[in-house]
């Protein structure tokens, strides 16, 4: 047994030496291969299944499910709904993204208190949040649908403009903006190459694969979380969940990604 292990270790060491002089291009290919392996049989499907149950689960003071929730395509229509979000909703007079609309449905349909419904928006590996399950389920229903976020409504147009300004707005102790990392081509942080998010070339693929499952910490992450954590990394004050600012930034990124077939929920390193 011991001899067998030693030879296995030696074989692994030999492989490592053989693989050492790889060039940047090969490295990128290897990372792509790794990402493809991650996506095969990704646990993100489990989140979609749990989300489907949660969507149909009756709860809250009105003991209702979310099945009649209108995500912009009519009550209960999920197919392609995420590909058109964020959008302007006449019933609230606001531009809303997926998460803020889901919370709106919890409040109006299920009769829940806004504070209670948003008490735990980001979960952890041991206990994912309700919104993380629901987001996985809802976005999965837009797989293959081309992203088509409209700015025809004046409020949607205003959100897009605000989002673009926020993207380039430098502030905080490090004087960073989103554009500091995502506005210049070819940047990377450790192993991760940073996508250029104010141009369709980078925004399309990236936006179309969020929300996503993070393999490294076994968690499903929503788009609100993605923005929240970007702001944390830039040392900004924490953005309010579902605020006009976060929705506007989402709007800017979504519009920049318009035309890309939605391919989520994704799987990330």
């Amino acid at each position: 047994m011991l001899a067998l292990r030693t030879s296995a270790v030696l074989a692994a060491a030999a492989l490592a030496i053989a693989a050492a002089p790889v060039h940047a291009q090969d490295e990128k290919k290897e990372i792509e291969k790794y990402q493809k392996m991650l996506a095969e049989g990704s646990p993100v499907e489990l989140f979609e299944l749990e989300g489907a149950d949660l969507w149909k689960k009756k709860q809250g003071p009105k003991n209702e499910s979310l099945e009649k929730c209108d995500l912009g395509m009519g009550p209960g229509v999920l197919k392609g709904a995420y590909a058109h979000l964020p959008r302007y909703f006449a019933d609230t007079g606001r531009v809303m993204d997926l998460e803020s609309r889901l919370v709106h449905c919890m409040v109006t349909l299920q009769g829940r208190d806004y504070k209670e419904a948003t008490k735990r928006v980001f979960g952890n590996a041991d206990k994912p949040s309700e919104l993380e399950y629901l987001a996985a389920y809802v976005v999965g229903k837009s797989r293959g649908v081309k992203i088509a976020v409209s700015t025809r409504n004046p409020k949607a147009k205003a959100a897009y403009e605000l989002g673009r300004q926020l993207f380039h707005y430098r502030a905080g102790p490090w004087d960073f903006s989103c554009a500091s990392c995502h506005g210049v081509a070819g940047k990377r942080i450790r192993m991760q190459s940073l996508p250029l998010l104010d141009k369709p070339s980078g925004a399309r693929r990236t936006y179309a694969t969020w929300p996503a499952y993070r393999v490294s910490n076994s968690q499903m992450k929503t788009f609100q979380w993605r923005l929240n954590d970007c702001y944390r990394q830039m040392r900004f004050p924490e953005p309010t969940f579902g605020s006009d600012a976060t929705v506007a930034l989402t709007m800017f990124l979504a519009v920049t990604a318009n035309g890309e077939p939605y391919d989520g929920p994704g799987t990330k390193r």
Partner: peptide, 8 residues
């Protein structure tokens, strides 16, 4: 074996 495993 990892959390939420996959087997083939």
């Amino acid at each position: 074996i990892s959390r939420n495993p996959v087997f083939a």
